[in-house]
């Protein structure tokens, strides 16, 4: 079967790739664009390790067809930091030790960024429900939730990102 040519934007840069009609966006990101920061934990939409933001919406990239990326703007974990300046969420994850193995971490960071983009002042409960689509088997979520709430507080206080 001949491949389909897709033109899209990834982390603010133009990107193009060839894919099979059945390929997921996750496959395209990982295998064709070499953006292996997005992880595959289940390929059924249940773990959130593959989370990306597409035109402002949080999606599981394993559930979106690669061809659907045509003309869209996609943010992956590789696009969260500003050059070598970490996003406050990334910095707070490190400070709070909100990762152990780190396999779920890219998905959590992308999902948490989408949360704070929508709601800069989430309650603990709101953060827990927003992040309920992301599985972490190592941390018990405690430090992840603390890191997200702390990053939100810092961003609200207007501290320069990534100082």
């Amino acid at each position: 079967m001949s491949k389909i040519h897709v033109t899209t934007t990834v982390n603010g840069e133009p990107a193009e790739f060839l894919c099979q009609p059945g390929n997921s966006l996750l496959d395209a990101l990982r295998d064709d664009l070499n953006l292996t920061g997005s992880k595959e934990g289940c390929s059924s939409g249940d773990c959130g390790a593959c989370s990306v933001i597409v035109d402002g919406r949080l999606v599981c990239s394993c559930l979106m067809l690669a061809v659907e990326a045509e003309g869209k703007s996609i943010t992956t974990i590789e696009g969260i930091a500003n050059g070598d300046v970490l996003h406050p969420l990334q910095r707070k994850f490190l400070e709070h030790a909100a990762l152990q193995c780190g396999f779920c971490t890219p998905g959590f960071l992308v999902a948490a960024k989408a949360l704070l983009d929508h709601n800069p002042d989430p309650t603990e409960t709101e953060a827990r429900y927003w992040l309920a689509g992301n599985l972490c088997r190592c941390t018990g979520y405690d430090k992840i939730i603390r890191a997200v709430l702390d990053a939100a507080a810092e961003m609200r206080a207007g501290a320069p990102a990534g100082e």
């Binding site: 773990c47 409960t125 979520y141």
Partner: peptide
Amino acid sequence: GFLDYRVPVASDL
């Protein structure tokens, strides 16, 4: 699968 084998999620805890 993780849909039917349900590990704890953040909102459970």
